[in-house]
């Protein structure tokens, strides 16, 4: 039997790695990948809590489905933004996208 904390630790590890990607990677697509990993970690958490809570209460899975939908939308919009920026500025490097600079 796998304790709940293992799943949570696993999800935390995935989240931390995703966070690292978001913070440290130069490429916007890579950052997007990090975001997807973080979202996945969240879904893992949700499903794990559902399983170890009351499985007949379907709320955890329903929430997970919503997060899936959000992830899909986020991926679509994020990638469209990246394409658009690429088209306008010939770059996908996050550090070069700094129009909001002081």
């Amino acid at each position: 039997m796998v304790p709940l904390s293992w799943y949570l630790t696993f999800a935390a590890a995935l989240f931390a790695l995703g966070l690292y990607a978001v913070l440290a990677r130069k490429n916007a697509v890579a950052i997007l990948m990090g975001v997807e990993i973080m979202l996945n970690a969240v879904i893992v958490n949700l499903v794990a809590f559902w399983r170890y809570g009351n499985p007949s209460d379907i709320a955890g899975q329903a929430f997970a489905v919503i997060v899936f939908a959000v992830a899909a939308a986020e991926a679509a919009v994020g990638l469209a933004l990246i394409i658009s920026i690429y088209r306008r500025r010939e770059t996908v490097m996050a550090e070069q996208i700094d129009l909001m600079k002081w």
Binding site: M1, V2, P3, L4, S5, L8, R51, Y52, G53, N54, P55, S56
Partner: peptide, 8 residues
């Protein structure tokens, strides 16, 4: 202390 896996 996390709850154990329900048996159901």
């Amino acid at each position: 202390r996390w709850p154990a896996l329900p048996g159901a």
